[in-house]
């Protein structure tokens, strides 16, 4: 039985598949969040150095991971869309961008809120914080470009080009910011990692990371369905859907 890989690459069949997958993923998201927060707040011990403030790590680190991970996933879907000219892959890339930008903003926000008690300042020109900020600009650039182009096909391809150019630049930006940081301040101020991560802290963080991942899948699937509806409005299956819905 040859699996027909391309069966789900047509927007129509993907629409129904996504419809079925969303409930499953949302349940896992909620379950993982509950578990993650429980371990984070009730199981993990008080950190002797940062007392309770370190608990922000359970949302800060997953958000930062997700912001980077989602950009890479977005760029790969955009590349597939560009290479194989499959509209659906570019739709998924367009759907990922807002969630990625949200996680980048979240990482910056929670980082600042965590930095305030620890270092006394909201913002520190640390290499990672700065490259996270630049990542946010890359996301906004991608979304702005796609919003400015009316014709969806050109928007997808132009977005793909800027996403790929962005992906190539992420390591360069990161290292140049790291170099720049050491040049100016010297490596004095670095994100004070809580010394030895107690196992429960680590598990808490991983569960939260998984929860954020599931969450992004749910939101991206929902947004992709909306984009499919928007772009396929003229097709017959959408009008049938309208008849029933």
């Amino acid at each position: 039985m040859a699996i027909n890989w391309f069966k789900y690459s047509s927007p129509a069949s993907f629409y129904s598949l996504a419809g079925k997958m969303i409930p499953i993923f949302s349940i896992t998201t909620i379950a993982l969040f509950v578990m993650g927060l429980y371990t984070g707040f009730f199981v993990a011990p008080t950190d002797f150095q940062q007392s309770e403030a370190y608990r922000i790590i359970f949302i800060h680190v997953p958000a930062a991971w997700m912001s980077m991970f989602l950009y890479l996933v977005m760029a790969s879907w955009a590349a597939i869309g560009l290479a194989f000219n499959t509209r659906l892959s570019s739709m998924i890339a367009t759907a990922i961008a807002p969630t990625g930008a949200m996680f980048t903003f979240l990482a910056l926000w929670t980082g600042a809120l965590w930095g305030k008690p620890m270092w006394g300042t909201w913002w520190v020109w640390d290499a990672r914080l700065t490259s996270e900020l630049i990542l946010l600009f890359l996301y906004i650039g991608f979304m702005a470009l796609q919003a400015a182009i009316d014709d969806p096909r050109r928007a997808d391809k132009a977005g793909a080009v800027i996403a790929l150019v962005g992906v190539v630049n992420i390591p360069i930006i990161y290292f140049s910011v790291k170099w720049w940081n050491t040049l100016h301040q010297g490596a004095t101020v670095s994100l004070t990692q809580s010394p030895k991560m107690a196992t429960t802290m680590l598990t808490g963080m991983f569960i939260m990371a998984l929860a954020c991942w599931m969450y992004s899948i749910v939101v991206v699937l929902m947004r992709t369905r909306t984009i499919i509806l928007e772009r396929e409005r003229h097709t017959t299956w959408v009008s049938e859907l309208q008849g029933t819905a």
């Binding site: 309770e52 608990r55 926000w109 965590w114 305030k116 008690p117």
Partner: peptide, 9 residues
């Protein structure tokens, strides 16, 4: 700080 970040999240 802790609840500030979680609420915003």
């Amino acid at each position: 700080y802790v609840w500030g970040s979680y609420l915003v999240a």
